[in-house]
Computed example of a mutant assay.
Amino acid sequence: MLGGELRQPTPPKDVGVTYSEDDEAWVWSQIKAEARRDAESEPALASYLYSTILSHSSLSRSLSFHLGNKLCSSTLLSTLLYDLFINTFSSDPSLCAAAVADLRAARMKDPACASFSHCLLNYKGFLACQAHRLAHKLWTQSRRPLALALQSRVSEVFAVDIHPAAKIGKGILFDHATGVVIGETAVIGNNVSILHHVTLGGTGKVSGDRHPKIGDGVLIGAAATILGNVKIGEGAKIGAGSVVLIEVPARTTAVGNPARLVGGKEKPSRLEECAGESMDHTSFMSEWSDYII
């Protein structure tokens, strides 16, 4: 049955594997099927779902239309943004591949994500990440005033502030996303999960390479702050509310203010055992005897 298929998406692929056109086509077909189902069950949304999803021939066109409507203003027209976004997607297929990976990440890692179309339409963390990738592409093309204007609109609309020079991998989950701040020289790897009110910032007014470097498979808990040009190793976990000023080795947990390191773990044999995939926020507590709620 259609409903059963929509509730059980296929697992995401391994880190480092490039998504193919078949992956995009499968996700897009799921999104359209979900939109048709929702339009039938809730007629009040039928026009919205048709204009945002069902009338489009591809994920990139749907996403360009949706982002254009979300980010437009009285002086930054939705039609201008749509043309800008669709042209940028067309010039770099990796942007759509990254969006597919992000959709899969949200669907597999967030139990509140009811469907791919729900993520596409309603997850501001997902939308902010896609807009950032478009702004980053403009930044690399030396179209910096436009990239900064997009950053400003994303911050105003989604309450997510990511400098367009920051580098972000794929399979990213910004869970809830409100208040996320990511600085200019920050780098985020693949399959990273970041909750709300997280800051990847600098330590002062010194310019240059001054922001955190986040490895693959990292989990960063709500309201965590990581400051300076420090490396967070692959599969590491940053506890909620922690303030991290030091390097965190791979598969190690950092908790507290200022953060201290708690144990470590041998390299997991499967991707889902990484913190950024398992979304396990509390396993460190048994190793930290003086933890107090």
Rank of each mutant, 00 (worst) to 15 (best):
N122T: 13
T18L: 15
R210H: 10
I194D: 02
A224C: 09
D102Y: 05
R210F: 10
F158V: 05
L148R: 12
G221S: 15
H66A: 06
L271W: 14
V198F: 08
I168L: 13
C274Y: 15
G183N: 10
K109P: 03
V248T: 02
Q141F: 06
A114M: 10
V187K: 13
S155C: 15
K124F: 07
A259F: 09
R270M: 15
H196D: 14
S91V: 02
G183D: 11
V157R: 02
I162E: 08
L103M: 07
L134S: 01
T52C: 11
V181G: 00
L67R: 06
V218Y: 09
S283G: 02
S47N: 12
G125C: 08
V157S: 00
V243D: 01
W26E: 08
N122K: 11
S94V: 15
Q8N: 13
E156P: 00
A131M: 03
G276T: 12
G215F: 10
V160N: 02
I86D: 09
H118M: 11
G239N: 03
I168W: 04
I232F: 12
M285D: 00
I182F: 12
I172N: 01
A186D: 06
V17G: 03
V198H: 07
S58I: 11
N122M: 12
S20L: 15
H132R: 06
K13W: 12
I292P: 00
G4K: 09
L120S: 00
L2Y: 08
A240V: 07
L95P: 03
P164S: 10
V15F: 13
H281I: 14
K109M: 14
G4I: 07
D290L: 10
A165H: 04
A147C: 08
G208D: 12
L2I: 10
A259V: 08
R251G: 00
F284N: 01
V230T: 06
S41R: 15
V244R: 11
V154R: 07
D83F: 12
G169N: 07
D38K: 14
P249T: 12
L245K: 08
S60T: 02
W28P: 00
Y82H: 13
E42C: 12
F126T: 01
T282M: 08
V187W: 04
R153H: 02
L219C: 01
P11H: 05
S193T: 15
L81T: 03
S207G: 14
E287W: 15
G189D: 07
T225K: 15
G201Y: 08
G4E: 14
H163Q: 08
L77I: 07
T203C: 14
L219E: 06
M279Y: 05
Q8C: 11
C129A: 06
F158E: 01
S60K: 06
H56I: 07
E156D: 03
F284A: 01
I246A: 11
A159I: 00
A147R: 04
R144D: 03
